[in-house]
Design a binder for these strands. Structure first.
Lengths: 207, 207, 207, 207
DNA sequence: TATGAATGAGTATTCATTCAT
DNA sequence: TATGAATGAATACTCATTCAT
């Protein structure tokens, strides 16, 4: 078991406090409309201290995004890896993804501006790292579809990776709907609401 | 038939040239990383001339987005309104959407940062106007699903609006894939590649 | 008798229209807060035409001030030169000065910013020319005091020029009062209200 | 006795240095012909530092004017309030006013452009604040005249406030004369030179 | 070690003036 | 001759970053 010195623990706590303040501000006003001074004030540190923890505004932003991205993806991947049959795993993917987004609205707003927005945002490098993690997830979902097809649980009507993208996209679509008008379009509690779109035929005369 | 004076035609051409230069730069580097000076230089006009055509940087951006959004949405809506049965209309929606995006990659990058990104970006008002148009499209697609259900062509496995969101999201998902790695993930020419995901059951033992 | 061609007369009328528009705007907003475009619009001429009449914004301003200054000083000097005894002439100076100011509030506002303000205003040259005219007036008033002293009508309690400055200053003081709060401090119709301050002793026990 | 920290004292010194540099430049070239960059260079600070001390160019100007106006008016009012009979007080008013102006030529140039110039200059609000102080002085002088009249020291030939305006105006007139040509028209050391104009009758045969 | 005063490059915007039509 | 589109230098102000204390 690793023990950090009090010094080290304090440092980490301060780092976290700065990141929390930054997230609050960035998610409210966007990267370019928040100054380092704003963050310092909100976190109740001096500007100099911010620069002790991060190389600059950009590094602070990157750290914020990567830290959270890592955390969220770790949870998502854990959910996908847990024991269970294919359908169960897909259900878990959907519920976990929805829960994570619900619990992390602020970072998600920023996250989507980055991952979905044009690649120029802030720094190309950030994008690449997050996309890599994102793709890891998608590939795990794809592998679930593939294994389901091999077990003849799923119809192989499309390439598994594309199916994964499709499933993920539908989740995202519903999440966006919820982000825009939370009361009008609540996030589905029941993953079947999403899964049925894939599992059941929409076209009746499937001749 | 309305005829514009030479003066008027020149003005419009110049306006277009400025917007084109701006689109090029904004899509490459993002709104905040492009200065009015950059745009002026790229468009080969003086800074003052830019301000003759637009009230400011923000107005220039808004004009760019709204002009294009209007154009794209007009085409999309026209495609949805043209005669045809429900399946045909959905196919047309997919092919048109994919074609429009393929032909307008640059604006689409910006478009997605705006419509899907956090609401703070640039100006809330723009967002609202574009989202309204966007929603108009979704509602038209929803009405296709609804009419299909009434005609018993489609299974009413989900709310039509949600189905529209799902279909649109899957299209977006594939478009993003293509945007990231165009060679690896070409945009499907055949709309059935997307439609089959909805039309055919993924789950085999649909007991 | 000099006759101007129609061309020439039109030119002068246009010049006057431009100067009138400029006076209106300058007196409302001040030299630096009025653009040549504003003047052109108000005068209903094109910018280019303004530059046909004046070398630039500064020249326009100078012309405006000098034209009016000449006109006003001409009237003042005429009033001082007209026949009459010393007391009559002083009365005429006061009434004429007050009337001219009342009738030309707009130019007077500008005039005072120039003549009394710091010498930097717009262009030192302007100042000099106007001050010269101004001083001409003062010297005429001084000569009235001097002649009055010689005729033993006036007590020679002070240098005539200084007396002239004093009389003029008291007029200005009352004019400023009136400019600020016209209802509260109306301009005296009766010149004796001002003259009595000089003519009668304020101190009673003039032992 | 209040002691300021070294930090605080430095700050105040820097603020004063900036104001001094600004006064120098404004009085030479006028508000609109001095840029913030000019002031920063003259004060040997960076532009950013100027904005640490003042909200903007206008605020810097206002601070400069109000600081000095307060200081000068405080001294003038103190002079008027000190013990003494009416004639003594008037003498003190004249000598103090002349001394203050002599010692503060630069600010006075600016002061007059503001208080006497057209109301549009810089910002109406400033004008109001200074005029209020100015009027306070005038009313104090008026009260001296009034009390003198009540004591039958002064002849009540005019409204006390108007007399105050007249006296002040004559002082201003002489001060302007001195500002223009200091050698030719030195500021009177002896206040009686001005007072006699009021105290003694100019008209001999006061029939 | 922590602070925040100081820096100055960078940005949006204005406007007097020119000149092709 | 009259026009007004085009020009671009100039300016107020911001903010990421540094560094002396």
């Amino acid at each position: 078991m690793e023990r950090l010195s009090r010094r080290e623990r304090e440092r980490l706590r301060h780092r976290r406090e700065i990141l929390d303040a930054a997230l609050e501000l960035f998610s409210e006003r966007g990267y370019h409309n928040v100054s380092v001074r704003d963050i310092a004030q909100k976190a109740e540190f001096s500007i100099g201290t911010i620069y002790k923890f991060f190389e600059g505004k950009e590094d602070l932003y990157r750290s914020l995004m990567l830290d959270k991205a890592e955390e969220l993806h770790a949870q998502l991947i854990e959910a996908l890896r847990r024991e269970g049959d294919e359908v169960e795993k897909l259900r878990r993917f959907i519920t976990t993804k929805c829960r994570l987004f619900r619990e992390n609205v602020k970072i998600v707003r920023l996250y989507f501006t980055e991952t979905r927005g044009a690649g120029f945002s802030i720094k190309a490098g950030l994008d690449q790292e997050i996309r890599k993690k994102y793709d890891e997830c998608l590939k795990l979902v794809a592998s679930i579809f593939r294994s389901g097809m091999e077990k003849k649980i799923f119809n192989d009507l499309s390439d598994p990776y594309r199916l994964a993208v499709a499933l993920d996209s539908v989740c995202n679509g519903f999440i966006f709907l919820w982000l825009e008008k939370p009361e009008e379009h609540p996030l589905p509690e029941d993953p079947n609401l999403i899964l049925d779109i894939f599992f059941k035929p929409l076209l009746l005369q499937s001749s």
